[in-house]
């Protein structure tokens, strides 16, 4: 099933003024349920405008031409707008700055209460959300969210979104400002959320190593257009494309390029450090010489250095 269906979507800010700025330019996009999509692009490329169309925070300007359908519901249809909003969980940048209630429990309950669920269901969902994000109910439920540490606040904010049990979870740079431990904890939390709560995840990130490690599809935006769309391997190994659109590549791919310049050629489709490590080991031990044409076996979820530093 298709979780997101977007056709001919364009959007301009300050329309019909001299400052008019085209933020989205005729976007066509479908996202399958169950996929983990990373959206990348520079600041101002249209990412956040696109995201806000997904739950009707921004409505298509040209209702006749454009269409945004989420899980079969049209974002232009007023009647389904509320339901649609609960199907798409939005975790904005620095979500801890939107906490407001005097206890963690009340803050997380805000979404479910707005859904008009009965009190038992609300409290059950709060408990479940807290346990998924790793906040102990007895310890945190009655505390003020403003007294928590930065990382804890962010987890409360995320719990507040997933307590609505959205089918689609959208995260805009969820690890911004966190320290390395916080980063790797949060990224594994996102994986867990996909497995347990929201089958479809859309992640905005500037970190190409994270994208290569987590996503099964990468969509690159530039000047409001989709300029690349495919698996991380397809997108990042197409160097002509990444150069042409000025796209950053993962560290592993960059190292491969640097090695190639020095005459050491490795397979072109290396995008994670674990893949790079196996390729290098193979080359160094010379037991099984690799050549550039031979594809690498697909290695499961690596990480960007979160493992032991020996």
């Amino acid at each position: 099933m298709q979780a997101v269906q977007i056709k001919n979507l364009s959007y301009s800010y300050s329309k019909k003024t001299p400052n008019e700025k085209l933020a989205l330019d005729n976007i066509d996009l479908t996202i399958e349920e169950g996929s983990f999509v990373a959206i990348i692009g520079e600041t101002g490329s249209g990412k956040s405008t696109l995201l806000q169309h997904l739950n009707g925070l921004i409505k298509p300007q040209d209702k006749k031409r454009s269409c945004v359908v989420i899980n079969g519901m049209s974002a232009t249809d007023k009647k389904s707008l509320r339901r649609l909003r609960f199907e798409v969980g939005m975790v904005f940048q620095y979500p801890e700055y939107q906490l407001f209630a005097d206890t963690v429990e009340k803050d997380i309950a805000f979404g479910p209460k707005n859904m008009k669920l009965d009190p038992d269901e609300v409290s059950q969902r709060v408990k479940r959300a807290m346990s998924v994000v790793g906040l102990d109910y007895d310890e945190f439920a009655q505390r003020s969210p403003f007294d928590l540490s930065g990382g804890e606040k962010r987890r409360v904010a995320i719990a507040g979104v997933i307590a609505m049990q959205p089918k689609i979870l959208v995260l805009d740079e969820p690890v911004a400002g966190l320290d390395p431990t916080g980063r790797s904890e949060l990224l594994s939390l996102v994986k867990k959320l996909q497995k347990e709560i929201s089958p479809t995840v859309i992640l905005v990130s500037h970190n190409m190593d994270d994208v290569a490690a987590l996503a099964d599809r990468v969509i690159a935006l530039k000047d409001g257009k989709i300029v690349a769309d495919g698996t991380p391997k397809q997108v990042f190994s197409d160097r002509r494309l990444t150069k042409a659109i000025g796209l950053d590549v993962p560290t592993a791919a960059r190292i491969c390029d640097m090695l190639a310049e020095r005459g050491v050629s490795l397979p072109r489709d290396i995008i994670t450090m674990d893949e790079l490590k196996s390729a290098l080991l193979a080359l160094l031990s010379k037991d099984a010489p690799l050549n550039a044409d031979q594809p690498l076996p697909n290695i499961p979820i690596p990480n960007d250095g979160g493992a032991a530093d020996v």
Binding site: Q52, R82, M90, P95
Partner: peptide, 27 residues
């Protein structure tokens, strides 16, 4: 930004009685 985030959690600012609307501003 905050309005967008609370709307995304189902808050509505333009419906209900005046009392409900004022209360909706708290978040």
């Amino acid at each position: 930004k905050i309005v967008a985030a609370q709307k995304a959690r189902g808050a509505s600012f333009d419906s209900g009685s005046i009392f409900a609307r004022v209360k909706a501003l708290i978040p």
